[in-house]
Amino acid sequence: MFKKQFVITILSILILSTAAFAVSGSYTGRDIMRLVEKGSSPKTTHAAVQLDIIEKNGTKKTRIIEMWMAKDKNDLNRTLIVFIKPTSVKNTRFLVLQNKGKPDDQYIYLPALRRVRRISASSRNKSFMGTEFTYEDMSTRNLDDDTHRILREEKYQGYDCYVIESVPKKKSNYSYSKTVKWVAKDKWVILKVEMYDKSGNLKKVLTMDKLEKIGKYWTPRVTTVKNVQTGRATILTDLNIEYDKKLPSQLFSVQYLKRGKLD
């Protein structure tokens, strides 16, 4: 009897130990980023956004944009941004089409020339419309472009987070030497990103605030990117957002980019 009880006890300890290991030790950095990708991936997004560009001296410029995002039949991302205000950039339109295994196709429509032009890779690290986002920041980064590892776990803004370091596998085709992300554990949402320049110095910090559940999706209503080296910042505030509405595929076409209207 004693021997039977001993075996049961040992087996229980082994099973519980295995379960405990599965709960805390089975996630890799890649697993977590994969969960982030799956968790925050609505089929479509339509948002009206106020974009405030804050200079080091505190002066502010405001842009209003409308954004649409969707996945095509190959699960590749499509993004369209249209500038609504101010007058100087009104009707400037920007289209990003993700490709598999090669850089995204990016286009911009310039209303002053009534012309659509492509954006080449040489422009990718240039500022997008004067903001702290670059054209590269606007393009899609594939999960396996980077090596991900868990640095630690800590609390951020009251949420338990994994802190993940992502290092590009090909250093030459990314502007940052690494990024560090705070991922809320139970929501699989990124709350903060630190971006490091090629010299390894902290360059930009992106924070997501006012987390709100809209439909099935946790959504930061305010996103701030601060360039710690220049003191400038860009703040995105969602004026309105809707998910998983049916969007016509023609919206993400070069033809729409030029015409600005759906047939």
Binding site: H46, A48, Q50, I64, E66, I84, T237, L239, N240
Partner: peptide, 8 residues
């Protein structure tokens, strides 16, 4: 219809 762009 009401604009999609009304801020809070």
């Amino acid at each position: 219809q009401e604009s999609f762009f009304k801020s809070s």
